[in-house]
Simulated scan of single mutants.
Amino acid sequence: MTATRAPRRPRWFLREPSPDAGVRLFCLPYSGCGASMYRQWPATVADIEICPVQLPGRENRMREEPFSSFGSLAEMLCDALAPHLDRPFAFFGHCSSALVAYETALRLQRRGLPVPARLFVSSQVAPHKGPHGRFLEMSEDELRAEVVTLITALGGVPRPDMVDLSLEVLLSDVDAHKAYGVSPPEPLPCPASVLGWDEDVEVPHELLHDWAELGETTFRLLHGPHYGFIGGPEALLRAFATDLGRTHQPQAG
């Protein structure tokens, strides 16, 4: 009799979180992207382990159904991350993934699970002030052009097949963002660091201050455009360490 193979468990991480980390920073991918978008970031900042999270429907999970809403994704993330919440942790989300980070933190609190030490929300208006963003009004052709720009910014070559796959994911993400709305919003379950970028024309930093209505926030204005976070700039890494109470030594060069 042939043994039945157990179904393969989804891989939520490109590398499993280390048991030696002092703090884990779970980094959620930007719209249309997978976990490899964080490949330019260091593996650690002080004793903070950078843990890029892989979402269904992209890269090595391309054959899986993408999420249908931020709420459903947050529920899945609670299940996937629960075994790794055995030490202080934080979430980083840029643009729409900042809202996913917020929703996941709320659901952890509702379930009686550990909540983040801090949320890092970048280039995203507060949950009750959206949905906001030029991408939400773009045509498919315009979004295709943005995919080409993003792949190039990530250091890749925008081959037609890669663009087509990424566009499919981006369209799904945009639909989920359009459908998202909370009124009134729930208070933050932990402090938040709200990160704006001084050259960001997609989500101007002046629009981010309403996060303060939800609880304890620290606002930081960093230098760079909307995609500036991709390279893991030193000011961003320093913000992680400072706001999580760790000591960071800047990388040489």
Results as ranks from 00 to 15, higher is better:
Gln40Arg: 15
Ser183Ile: 14
Val163Cys: 07
Val194Met: 03
Thr218Val: 14
Lys178Val: 11
Ala46Gly: 08
Trp197Ala: 00
Pro250Asn: 07
Glu216Ala: 03
Gly224Phe: 09
Ala176Cys: 15
Gly253Thr: 10
Arg144Asp: 08
Pro189Ser: 04
Glu186Leu: 11
Arg15Ile: 08
Ala212Ile: 01
Ser123Arg: 04
Tyr38Trp: 07
Leu207Lys: 09
Asp243Trp: 03
Ile50Gly: 01
Val163Leu: 08
Pro250Ala: 04
Tyr227Thr: 12
Glu75Val: 12
Phe91Met: 00
Leu55Cys: 00
Val115Asn: 01
Ala101Trp: 03
Leu207Glu: 12
Asp47Asn: 12
Thr2Ile: 14
Asp47Val: 10
Gln109Met: 10
His209Ile: 06
Ala3Ile: 15
Arg8Tyr: 12
Leu188Tyr: 03
Thr104Arg: 02
Arg15Met: 14
Glu168Met: 06
Arg111Phe: 02
Thr149Phe: 08
Ser123Ala: 15
Leu167Ser: 07
Ser172Gln: 13
Leu171Tyr: 13
Arg246Ser: 03
Val53His: 04
Ile151Glu: 07
Met37Gln: 11
His248Pro: 10
Gly231Phe: 09
Arg39Ala: 14
Pro225Ser: 12
Asp164Ser: 15
Pro114Asp: 08
Ala3Val: 15
Pro83Phe: 13
Leu171Gly: 09
Gly232Val: 13
Gly34Lys: 01
Gly57Leu: 07
Leu221Tyr: 02
Leu28Pro: 05
Ser123Gln: 05
Leu136Val: 11
Pro66Leu: 02
Glu140Asp: 15
His132Glu: 07
Leu154Asp: 12
Ala192Gln: 01
Leu136Gln: 08
Val182Arg: 05
Gly71Thr: 09
Leu170Lys: 06
Cys27Lys: 01
Gly232Asp: 07
Ser183Tyr: 15
Ser36His: 06
Gly71Asp: 15
Pro225Ile: 06
Arg5Leu: 15
Arg159Asn: 11
Val157Lys: 14
Trp211Gly: 05
Met76Thr: 14
Cys33Glu: 00
Glu216Arg: 00
Pro225Leu: 08
Met37Pro: 04
Glu75Asn: 09
Pro17Ile: 01
Val115Trp: 02
Ser96Val: 13
Met162Thr: 07
Ser69His: 08
Pro185Arg: 05
Val194Asp: 02
Tyr227Cys: 10
Glu140Pro: 06
His177Glu: 13
Pro158Gly: 06
Met138Phe: 15
Gly22Arg: 05
Ala235Glu: 15
Leu237Phe: 05
Arg61Leu: 09
Ala252Tyr: 08
Ile48Gly: 00
Ser123Glu: 05
His128Trp: 06
Val147Cys: 13
Leu108Arg: 00
Glu64Gln: 11
Leu208Gln: 01
Thr218Gly: 11
Cys78Trp: 01
Pro88Asp: 05
Gly215Thr: 00
Ala101Pro: 09
Thr149Asn: 13
Met76Tyr: 10
Leu195Gln: 02
Val53Pro: 03
Val125Cys: 01
Asp161His: 13
Ser72Gln: 15
Glu59Gln: 11
Val194Asn: 04
Ala241Gln: 08
Ala90Gln: 03
Arg220Tyr: 14
Asp200Gly: 08
Glu202His: 11
Pro160Phe: 08
Met138Val: 08
Val194Tyr: 04
Arg220Phe: 09
Leu207Thr: 14
Ala252His: 07
Leu221Cys: 12
Thr2Val: 14
Ala90Lys: 05
Ser72Trp: 13
Glu213Asn: 12
Arg111Pro: 10
Pro56Cys: 10
Ala192Trp: 01
Asp164Val: 10
Thr4Glu: 15
Ala117Thr: 08
Leu113Arg: 14
Arg9His: 14
Pro187Met: 03
